[in-house]
């Protein structure tokens, strides 16, 4: 369930695990909080002033469930996001795409290749960006710490904060 929090005139919408949100409301801030191996994708059309954020959890949809939760998987998230953004008048050719996350929070448990999920998510998101003919403008990836990411619909500014670090513009 997408959670909302009102701060002054702005409404912050939290995009949870495997969720996607599209908005053209200038008072809205979209956020992916506490990203570990997951990847947050922000997309913004500066002409239509439409933005989207997706919280990708897994690289591929081959394990089924993608019809119900396309945003959960890197390979189905971007097409679903593009379809939704186009409904709001966004154009694929104008989209500014930024991504954050894909950390390797743990690397010391033996025999668990699944713990490389962050790297596999990065590869899958990069492939999906290329396959959907999109251009990646900025990225804050890998490392061993969690991240949070915000997209301001009014301006298209994307900000990122790494655990215990300052908020910086991406």
């Amino acid at each position: 369930m997408t959670a909302c929090q009102d701060v002054g005139q702005q409404t912050t919408i939290m995009v949870g695990l495997g969720e996607m949100h599209v908005s053209n409301d200038p008072n809205t801030v979209l956020s992916c909080l506490g990203l570990g191996s997951c990847i947050g994708i922000s997309a913004y059309d500066p002409v239509a002033k439409v933005g989207a954020m997706v919280h990708v959890v897994l690289p591929h949809s081959s394990n089924a469930g993608s019809e119900k939760s396309p945003a959960r998987y890197a390979d189905t998230a971007l097409p679903a996001m593009l379809r939704e953004m186009e409904k709001y008048g966004a154009s694929r050719s104008r989209l500014i795409i930024k991504i954050a996350g894909g950390a390797r929070i743990i690397d010391t448990i033996p025999g668990k290749s699944a713990l490389d999920i962050g790297e596999r998510n990065i590869e899958a998101v990069m492939t999906a960006i290329e396959q959907n003919r999109l251009e990646l403008k900025a990225a804050d990836l890998r490392g061993k710490m969690g991240r949070s990411m915000w997209l301001y619909i009014a301006t298209g500014v994307t900000r990122v904060r790494t655990t215990a670090g300052p908020v910086v513009e991406l």
């Binding site: 191996s37 959890v57 699944a114 969690g146 655990t163």
Partner: peptide
């Protein structure tokens, strides 16, 4: 073996939830 982490709750849970989801 155990791993001790100090991080955002979401980032720590990602490890288990990615596999479960």
């Amino acid at each position: 073996p155990p791993v001790v982490l100090y991080d955002m709750a979401g980032a720590i849970l990602d490890i288990a939830l990615a596999e479960i989801l």
